[in-house]
Design a protein around this nucleic acid. Structure first.
Length: 579
RNA sequence: GGUCCUAUGGUCAAGCGGUCAAGACACCGCCCUUUCACGGCGGUAACCCGGGUUCGAUUCCCGGUAGGAUCACCA
């Protein structure tokens, strides 16, 4: 077979050589040890927590080392394309403060184009070269034939796929190929796998001995099968049988498969670390063989664990699914109003096992100061824990200044709860507004033991809504220790003695006086000791007031709340109950 | 089914041949307290099973079991 001639027959329009392409993508000029990472989403328009998890690893690895993090759109499957998807992806990541240095939709970047759909000529140049070297061939197998082969293999209980004797098109003559093409038969290009049987010419055959492949992976024989050993930055050395499938590298459309695009792009774009989900681990042998055949060095792989959750139905662990689990969608967190910092910080706690420890030792340090390492990543799938997220969020929000939080709340409302927006920007009522909101959010946050009530925007609004008249309602009944008559009496006396300028202790002294006067213990302890002597205690009395002003029995300090509400609103709420 | 990954309390996790097996979240109790939160103190709770190797295995090896991943002209 004249491979040179075959290559020309297949790719007459390709006139560049791999060397010429290679020259267009010179090694990057970066400091020693700098890592180059990339995010390669397919433009389905859906970005989920797993993407963010991975993107975060990419971003940290690159930016921590003075390297480059770029965005490459893997749109080799035209069926999947969704309009505006790239914008969705970049804006979602930007929301979480994850930014690219170069790539799709960005100015500059010497390693583009960053859309795989625009790199056809590049891939074909390398495919043509492979054909020319007898390492790849056209395959005319139809869907029916493929199904037939598969059925045959299943019946014989052997591994399915196109390999060895099943690779029927492998040894087609030039004339046969030419005739097929002339007849207009569609075809794909497959690699001619070297197989995984022991090959003394290529590999070690002394038991246990290993040799290094061109790409840098090691291979060693196991019981007649060649195994490849690759060092994964997260998992350590992983071993699996070498690839023996004549995998497709170019589809009938002339577009490469993920496998081939990955190899060519990550090589040309000089990616040093390939971060991707565990679901790719099994195709590693294919990639090793591809890197080998192309003569490219292997990048460092970082196969991240899959995020899991407990399935309500079965009670078992399972991979988060975008269909069943709304919390997987990044939109869920934006919708609930989680602060991006909180999500990031939580992600970091499941990403690096020593992060929490570091955070406790450095409560005020920026995340950027934490030294993130792939070695500290867990290789098992972590369960997503909403409780933990909430806990982390409380601490994160505590460190954000109230004014900034108010802004965040307003932004959230504008996007997800438009009816609340006028409330927060003051356009509904001049006495409300950003400053009012900031004061509310700052309530009880000062001092040595600040409150940690705030978790996410939706929850925060629920927590503070009584500050806004339109959302103020009496939600609970008065405590059973207090009769209706007493309740009325308490409120009447409270209103009569109310002086907005009282300080906190003057204010509480008055409540205490009312309590004692009506037969309630001045101190809860007295009541506990001699419950028979009292109707209740001062706590019950203040609950009545709390209920009148806040509408609920539980809230932060009443005096402080009243100071924010202002005298007018405070009096009005009590008066409303005395009518 | 083949192959690969994983296996410490309910969850996330330290551990890397000798520990009374850390810590965090959640949960429970007590204290603080006019409620709630915060905070403090304390508590319940774990090395999947079976073989080895070893003076000694949670830790190393083998087997089993369980969970997960993957077997496309999808990425």
């Amino acid at each position: 077979m004249d491979y040179e001639k075959l290559a020309e027959l297949l790719f007459p329009h390709i006139d560049k050589t791999p060397e010429e392409i290679e020259a267009m993508y010179p090694p990057r000029e970066l400091p020693e040890g700098a890592k180059v990472t990339r995010l390669g989403p397919s433009p389905t328009g859906f970005i989920h927590l797993g993407n963010l998890y991975g993107a975060f690893v990419d971003e940290r690895l690159a930016h921590q080392s003075g390297g480059t993090f770029y965005l490459r759109i893997e749109d080799t499957d035209d069926k999947r394309y969704v309009e505006g998807a790239v914008e969705t992806i970049t804006s979602a990541l930007k929301f979480f403060d994850i930014n690219f240095d170069e790539g799709a939709e960005m100015e500059g970047g010497a390693y583009g184009p960053y859309y795989q759909s625009q790199r056809g000529e590049i891939y074909q140049t390398f495919v043509k070269d492979l054909v020319k070297r007898g390492q790849a061939y056209p395959c005319f197998l139809t869907e029916e034939e493929l199904a037939e082969i598969r059925a045959e293999q299943e019946a014989a209980k052997v591994t399915t796929g196109i390999y060895g004797e099943y690779a029927r098109c492998r040894d087609l003559t030039y004339e046969e190929i030419e005739a097929n093409i002339a007849a207009g038969k569609p075809y794909v290009i497959r690699i001619k796998s070297k197989g995984n049987q022991v090959d003394p010419a290529h590999c070690c055959h002394e038991s246990g001995a290993a040799c290094t492949t061109r790409s840098g992976a090691k291979c060693v024989n196991h019981d007649g099968t060649m195994y490849i050993h690759v060092n994964d930055a997260i998992r350590g050395e992983v071993a699996m049988p070498a690839n023996d499938q004549d995998v497709i590298i170019l589809k009938a459309t002339g577009i490469p498969t993920y496998h081939f695009a990955h190899v060519v792009d990550d090589h040309l774009m000089r990616t040093t670390h390939v971060v991707r989900g565990e679901e790719w681990l099994m195709s590693l042998p294919i990639h090793v063989e591809l890197f080998d055949k192309c003569g490219f060095p292997l990048p460092t792989y970082c196969h991240t664990a899959v995020l899991m959750k407990i399935d309500e139905e079965t009670g078992g662990k399972r991979k988060l699914s975008k269909r069943k689990d709304p919390e997987l969608s990044l939109d869920y967190y934006r919708n609930e109003g989680y602060h991006p910092q909180a999500v990031k910080e939580y992600l970091l706690t499941i990403l690096n096992s020593n992060f929490e420890e570091w955070r406790m030792a450095n409560p005020d340090a920026s995340i950027d100061e934490f030294e993130f390492t792939t070695e500290k990543m867990s290789s098992g799938g972590a369960l997503f824990d909403l409780d933990k997220l909430n806990d982390v969020s409380k601490d994160v929000l505590l460190k954000i200044p109230a004014a900034e939080l108010a802004e965040f709340m307003a932004g959230w409302a504008a996007e997800f709860r438009p009816e609340l927006a006028p409330l927060f920007d003051g356009s509904a009522d001049a006495s409300y507004g950003p400053e009012y909101l900031a004061k509310i959010l700052d309530l009880g946050r000062d001092g040595k033991k600040p409150r940690k009530d705030l978790i996410y925007a939706k929850q925060i609004f629920e927590f503070i809504r009584y500050f806004y008249d339109d959302y103020f309602v009496i939600e609970e009944p008065v405590p059973e220790e207090v009769s209706d008559e007493d309740a009325r009496e308490i409120l009447q006396r409270y209103l009569d003695s109310y002086d907005h300028s009282d300080d906190q202790s003057q204010w509480f002294d008055k409540i205490r006086a009312i309590a004692v006067d009506l037969g309630y213990a001045a101190k809860p302890k007295d009541f506990k000791k001699h419950p028979e002597d009292y109707k209740g205690h001062v706590g019950h009395v203040s609950t009545v007031i709390r209920l009148a002003v806040m509408g609920r029995t539980q809230s932060p300090d009443v005096w402080e709340i009243q100071q924010i509400l202002g005298e007018e609103r405070t009096r009005a709420r009590i008066e409303a109950l005395l009518i």
